[in-house]
Structures are given as C-alpha cells and as structure tokens.
Amino acid sequence: MAIRDRGMKKWQFAFGHLELIKGQQDLWRDQERIAKPIVDPYELEEFNQRIAYAMEYNLAVIITI
C-alpha cells in the first residue's frame, strides 16, 4: 500500500502561522511603547546648562532614557 502524501497542503498552515506570530509580536511591541514626554524650553535649557557645566569641568554625566 502506497502512502498518499498531501504535498504542500499540509504545510500551508505552518507558513501562515509564522505570519500570525510575527503580527502578534508586533502588536504586543506597539502596546508596550511609551509616548515621548513633552519637554518645555526651560527644561531643555536646564539640561543644556548641566551638560555644558559637566563638559567644562570634566565631570561624568549619566543620561537615562
């Protein structure tokens, strides 16, 4: 008795499944994103002054995002 193979039909869902997983990962990644905070000009100027002061006196600066 010969084995009847379905050919590419048995792999169709597996190939589509990869696209579903990637789409789901992209959706989760988008949901975890945090909107950028709005920095007013006074805060921006304060940041610039602190960086300039640190550069002038060779001080270490830690910048976190």
Rank of each mutant, 00 (worst) to 15 (best):
T64M: 11
Q49K: 15
W28I: 08
K10Q: 05
I65G: 11
E43V: 06
R6D: 02
P37M: 07
M1E: 03
Q49W: 10
A2V: 00
I38H: 10
A52F: 13
Q49M: 12
I63S: 10
Q25F: 03
I38S: 10
V39L: 04
E19L: 01
Q31K: 02
Y42L: 08
I63C: 10
A35Q: 07
I3V: 05
R50T: 12
D30T: 04
E45V: 06
Q24M: 09
M8A: 01
Q12I: 08
I38C: 11
G16N: 04
A60M: 12
G23T: 02
R50K: 15
Y57I: 13
K36V: 03
A35E: 03
R6M: 05
M1N: 00
L59Q: 15
A60P: 11
K22T: 07
M55Y: 09
E32N: 04
Q12T: 08
I65S: 10
A2C: 00
F13R: 07
W28V: 06
V61H: 11
D40G: 12
F47C: 14
A2W: 00
V39A: 06
E56P: 09
D26P: 09
V61E: 05
D5A: 01
E56G: 12
L59D: 14
W11V: 01
Q12A: 13
K36H: 04
E19F: 08
N58F: 14
K10S: 02
I62N: 14
E43H: 09
Q49L: 12
P41S: 09
A14L: 05
D30G: 07
K9T: 09
W11C: 00
L59G: 15
Y53F: 13
I34C: 00
